[in-house]
Design a protein around this nucleic acid. Sequence first.
DNA 1: AAGGTGACCGGCC
DNA 2: TGGCCGGCCACCT
Length: 110
Amino acid sequence: MPLNDNFFERVYHIARQIPYGKVTSYGAIAKVIGSPQSARMVGYAMNASHLQSDIPAHRVVNRNGLLTGKHHFDGTNLMQQLLESEGISVKDNKIVDFQSHFWQPDVNQL
DNA sequence: AAGGTGACCGGCC
DNA sequence: TGGCCGGCCACCT
């Protein structure tokens, strides 16, 4: 099942599949790639993902829908703008109605 | 070469 | 409501 044993590549593989207008969490990705306690590494991978152009890192937030990674984007609220341009409202750095925008990654997508 | 530091999370007071 | 801890592991002193 581990098609890629490389942790980062697994993270990117899932992240690339987040649909437009949807979001997921670091923990959800960590869980589906088989390292449920490595959410922290998922964040680390996102930090490095700005080198790759095809990773929608703005669609990954923490478990409460909080935009904890916003400071890693250019400008002050680029992350928020990207999300809002996809129809997701953000208030106080937090996604409004997080539940209904949440996309649950699937093991089969590995 | 050992230790600190995270875009986190769940559990536990 | 809020804080602390341990687990995770790539990078950087």
